[in-house]
């Protein structure tokens, strides 16, 4: 019973000394400490370590010139305009870019886009057949070519649906906004 109490006290000793325990547990440990010299000694050891830690880790002034160096780099950042955009700015940019791309696609004309895509697919297909002649992974390229044709066909059929333009615009907008966030997070890891 006593050993159990000691073990619980030892486990919570740091939080107890730091005043971070819930009231009932704190009171329970206080009572236990009054009757357990071994745990009392642990409290003294812990407190001594705290004093030594705080002395060893005492802060020192920042080096001279560091502040100026930081402010100079901040001024440089500001001049270069390297500041992350706020959500509002991201939305406006994504909106503008999406509209621009939508107009570009309309201007290019949908069927013209498919034929370009199909040409690329044809190139992959030709590459696949040539590679299969040489027996180097041609099968993989050929299957890619088939998949490419299927994808182009799917895009084409979706594009012919009513409101396809709106769906395209919304997808583009989400893609740009999410892409920006992904880049930002992967860059800064905060």
């Amino acid at each position: 019973m006593i050993r159990f109490a000691c073990r619980d006290t030892q486990k919570n000793l740091t939080a107890y000394i730091n005043g971070e325990l819930e009231r009932p547990l704190e009171e329970w440990i206080s009572r236990h400490l009054q009757e357990c010299p071994r745990c009392q000694a642990s409290v003294q050891t812990e407190k001594r370590l705290n004093r030594q830690l705080e002395s060893a880790l005492a802060p020192e002034p920042a080096p001279e010139g560091l502040r100026e160096r930081i402010m100079a780099s901040i001024a440089q950042e500001a001049r270069a305009g390297r500041r992350d955009m706020s959500w509002g700015e991201v939305m406006i940019c994504a909106l503008s870019l999406s509209l621009l791309l939508c107009f570009a696609v309309i201007w290019l004309d949908g069927p013209a886009v498919y034929s370009t895509l199909a040409e690329w697919g044809g190139f992959v297909s030709r590459l696949g057949s040539r590679l299969s002649e040489w027996e180097i992974g041609g099968g993989v390229v050929a299957s890619l070519s088939v998949q490419w044709d299927n994808t182009v066909g799917t895009v084409q059929s979706v594009w012919n649906q009513p409101d396809a333009g709106m769906v395209f615009f919304i997808l583009l907008f989400c893609f740009i906004a999410a892409g920006y966030q992904w880049l930002r997070l992967s860059k800064w890891t905060t």
Partner: peptide
């Protein structure tokens, strides 16, 4: 390292500046 600490401090403030909008 002192030099590393100074570089890191500078990097932290640059990140803070860049991400302040967030």
């Amino acid at each position: 390292h002192r030099a590393d600490a100074q570089d890191a401090t500078q990097e932290v403030f640059i990140k803070v500046f860049r991400q302040l909008a967030h």
